[in-house]
Design a protein around this nucleic acid. Structure first.
Lengths: 212, 212
DNA sequence: GTACATACCGAACGTTTGTTATGTACTTCG
DNA sequence: CGAAGTACATAACAAACGTTCGGTATGTAC
């Protein structure tokens, strides 16, 4: 009644890994069941065995995407407030090859997400969650007295996410123009101008622009 | 030797219009020759008669996209410098249904553009052109003494485009959360914080945040 | 050992894709 | 009025797609 000679969840994860590899290389336009099966040296029967269909496969791939972005152990927030906000931003930016792949898939997913109602809703709520995280850090910063601006926290969160994702897109299309060092500098400049005191003399000893 | 009973270019434009309609509704994933033909009440033979194939069709559609974005007569720059920069940003943002459709197609095109080398290069150069335009406005602003910050003009152009396109994506996924009024306010706040004096007392009589 | 459920392959199914070929209506030229 | 060439519909085509299914191997349960 319970023959479980293989770890079901582990195998499912293997399939998702293959989905990931295909997605990072050919985008959603090149995501087919056969391509996934081929990427893991298996047959399409295996893929359909663990996933009901392509729709379910895509949905799970996007879930993995979020999980990767969140659990990526790249940076830990060194302190609450502005430092945590900066960590959030840097964790999203494509600073590593893995982050590059993640963002590539993320951007590619927008095509189908905009057309499919289910994926659209999922993506929308994902954005709300990210903005909520950013907002929490911003609220902490305000509580800590780190903020100069009096702008609305929701607006600031939206603006921060705007800058971050827009920078991601540009970096994807011109990796050599936006190396990690420049991405970090742009992010720091943005954060300084938006939150910290870019005002001369308002926050001494805190250079907003590091040398080129 | 020259029977031209229909305007070839006009018909080509009609096809591109149909491409546009399909793209705005179903994204690039739903762009097929039959869908295009159906959208203009014609047959696939007509489509292939005016375009060599799908590749050519997509390329032309992306050209149209750029043309629309540039020639959109929404706003004229009232003055050089910061005002022109603001106009640039507002012209990109999805402030109208048409701008919504334009940006939707734009975002959807990233999927295939990231996988296709030719489209990738085209998209990359498109971004460089936009950044060059923004940079020109920023240089003007600096020449006019409108800039408080001393940051690099290229960095500022990249940051501005980042913010703008990231905001576009968020607005596409949550139109009711980002109505035109809020988009405009966010843009003005961003520009004020990044370029103008968000420093209290540095630019009197120029409120960076308009009331909700 | 027998029964049964899972894991997976391999092939087939029908549909949809891009592309190509054929045929017809029409307009212009000589 | 033919001749010729364009404009377009219609249909056929192979390839690739998502999905379904029978078959086989392998494990646990009784």
């Amino acid at each position: 009644m319970s023959p479980a000679r293989t770890d079901h969840d582990a195998r499912r994860h293997d399939v998702s890994e293959a989905v990931w590899r295909v997605l990072a290389e050919h985008g959603f336009a090149g995501l087919t069941l056969r391509a996934v099966a081929g990427a893991m040296g298996a047959s399409t029967g295996l893929v359909t065995h663990y996933f009901g269909g392509k729709r379910e496969l895509v949905a799970h791939a996007l879930d993995i995407l979020e999980t990767r972005t969140q659990r990526r152990p790249r940076l830990k927030a060194p302190a609450p407030g502005l430092a945590a906000l900066r960590t959030h931003v840097l964790n999203i930016l494509p600073l590593t090859p893995e982050g590059m792949a993640t963002n590539r898939v993320w951007v590619c997913s927008w095509d189908i997400a905009l057309s499919d109602p289910v994926l659209f809703a999922a993506q929308t709520s994902r954005y709300e969650r990210i903005r909520a995280d950013l907002r929490a850090a911003i609220d902490d910063a305000r509580r800590l007295g780190e903020l100069v601006t009096g702008a609305d926290a929701d607006d600031l969160a939206a603006t921060t996410l705007s800058f971050t994702h827009g920078l991601v897109v540009q970096a994807l299309f011109a990796p050599e123009t936006f190396p990690p060092a420049r991405l970090t500098r742009l992010a720091d400049d943005f954060l300084a101008a938006t939150f910290g005191g870019s005002c001369p003399g308002s926050a001494p000893g805190h250079e907003p622009r590091s040398g080129q």
